[in-house]
């Protein structure tokens, strides 16, 4: 069976896992599940079925495949990831700074320092991953 859309395949697996997790959590007491919960579960299962159908169906999968591999969309996504990363890190740093200035007790100050530290660590991780990626790429190009 050919996979036409990986994104939808992973979506289907995700929804299936979600439904199975819910059933596993409520094992032994399935009779006590409320009708609202059953309807939510039915919606999740239906979503999983739709995702799997789209992932394996040639007719609907073609459009999904085009959407996934569209070069402009990929470029746009990359730009969105970059912008969200930098704005997220900056936002985290600002929140930490703001929390520190508003902190009343010692514990709140520690939390704010932790937030700022996480922003710095995130940046360091980004630099590390970028360096590793460029190193691997240069190694590959030398081969």
């Amino acid at each position: 069976m050919k996979i036409y859309s990986r994104k939808n395949l992973f979506g289907g697996i995700f929804y299936t896992c979600l439904a199975l997790l819910y059933l596993w959590q409520n094992r032994g007491q399935l009779d006590d599940i409320s009708p609202i919960d059953w309807s939510i579960l039915a919606c999740v299962i239906a979503a999983a079925c739709i995702r799997f159908y789209t992932a394996f169906s040639k007719k609907t999968g073609r459009q999904a495949m085009i959407e996934e591999n569209d070069e402009r969309e990929k470029l746009l996504q990359l730009k969105i990831y970059r912008t969200s990363f930098w704005s997220g890190s900056f936002g985290l740093f600002l929140i930490g700074w703001f929390a520190e200035s508003c902190a009343g007790d010692e514990a709140a100050k520690y939390v704010s320092v932790g937030i700022r530290l996480s922003a710095v660590l995130l940046l360091l991780l980004h630099i590390l991953v970028s360096a590793a990626y460029s190193f691997i790429r240069s190694c590959r190009s030398l081969q």
Binding site: I66, E67, N69, D70, E71, R72, E73
Partner: peptide, 9 residues
Amino acid sequence: YVTSRTIIA
């Protein structure tokens, strides 16, 4: 094999 949005852009 692209989206119509790409053609518009």
